[in-house]
């Protein structure tokens, strides 16, 4: 009886082991096949993406004609190339993915149950910059899965369609935001100045994170038409953070008209963080008319302000010896700490 039980157990164990070994062998064979096929078709893929036009077309025709099994192996490598090239090579890859039905499948996958499938599809359509997918991706900004929403925002940025701007801002305005502010900012930056009209209407949005994101993007995009709106935020936004970001954006825009507003923001009655940001912005703005103000700020009792003033003066081309000579002892130390080139020059 005991011997029989032992025999059965041994047989079961042997079968399990056999199964494990068989699975491993199958997986290794599959991986070897993938490696072999990928290496075999590698020159074709390189010609497709980096070859001269006639050669690229020839490679595209050859890859398009591959049997389904070979294409399945090669598809991930082709999709990966989308993220690495632009220009003609990118266009060839997109054409090929269209020919092989990958893009149609991706559109279908946007509605799959599994979040990972929806996210992968949204990512692919964004990377391929397939026109006509904006509306589907906008819908995904309300997806139940946070990763899918994030990927949808990124893809909308890659598509570069200004029509997506209001939806991105709406996703940001939700409580909590449907998409992280940094992801929305990246998408808006990719969309570029074409989205400026919608951004400008959002500078006085009731939700602070929308205002701050819009301010950052306007500054980074260099939307000079935003000057008046940004000066309004600098002077009167209820949140100091937004005022600081407005100062930074005005500095980045480099508009001399903003100098009086920035100078006002550096005055002692303003919040400390704003004074620091405004001083830095005066330096970024790069107007020689700010030298006298910055000179005065070198003596500021707030070392952070004095440091920024020193930094700004150096940026404006004032010789470092002059900056140090005009500084108070505390700001000399602070400036020297921030600007290693000054150390030892005092």
């Amino acid at each position: 009886m005991i011997l029989a039980a032992f025999g059965v157990t041994s047989a079961v164990a042997a079968l399990v082991m056999l199964g494990v070994v068989a699975r491993r062998v199958t997986r290794r064979l599959r991986e070897a096949r993938v490696r072999r096929l990928t290496a075999q078709h590698r020159p074709l893929l390189l010609s497709l993406v980096a070859g001269d036009p006639p050669e690229a077309r020839e490679a595209a025709t050859a890859v398009a004609a591959l049997d389904t099994a070979s294409w399945r192996v090669l598809e991930p490598a082709v999709v990966a190339l989308l993220a690495k090239v632009r220009g003609e090579g990118h266009e060839e890859v997109v054409r090929l993915l269209g020919t092989r039905g990958v893009l149609v499948r991706a559109r279908r996958d946007l509605h799959r149950r599994r979040a990972s499938r929806r996210a992968a599809a949204a990512d692919l359509l964004g990377r391929a910059q397939v026109p006509g997918t904006v509306r589907s991706l906008v819908r995904l900004l309300d997806d139940r899965d946070a990763d899918v929403r994030h990927v949808a925002a990124r893809s909308l940025g890659r598509l570069g369609s200004a029509s997506a701007v209001p939806s991105l801002l709406r996703a940001l305005a939700a409580e909590p935001p449907r998409v992280p502010p940094a992801a929305v900012a990246q998408a808006l930056l990719r969309i570029g100045p074409a989205g400026a009209p919608d951004l400008l209407t959002a500078v006085d949005h009731p939700v602070a994170v929308v205002r701050s994101t819009v301010v950052v993007v306007l500054g980074r995009l260099g939307v000079t038409g935003a000057g008046t709106a940004l000066r309004g935020l600098l002077a009167g936004d209820p949140l100091t953070d937004v005022r600081c970001l407005a100062a930074t954006a005005l500095g980045a825009l480099g508009m001399p008209g903003a100098v009086p507003d920035l100078v006002r923001a550096t005055r002692p009655g303003s919040p400390g963080a704003l004074r620091v940001a405004a001083t830095r912005a005066l330096g970024d703005l790069g107007a020689s008319s700010t030298v006298a103000v910055l000179d005065g700020l070198l003596h500021d009792p707030d070392a952070r302000v004095a440091t920024e003033a020193g930094h700004a003066l150096l940026g404006l081309g004032v010789p470092r010896a002059d900056v140090l000579a005009r500084s108070t002892p505390s700001s000399v130390v602070a400036v020297a700490e921030r600007v290693p080139a000054l150390t030892g020059a005092a």
Partner: peptide, 8 residues
């Protein structure tokens, strides 16, 4: 900058 154009 990446993504890059091989021709460029």
């Amino acid at each position: 900058t990446k993504p890059f154009s091989p021709r460029e």
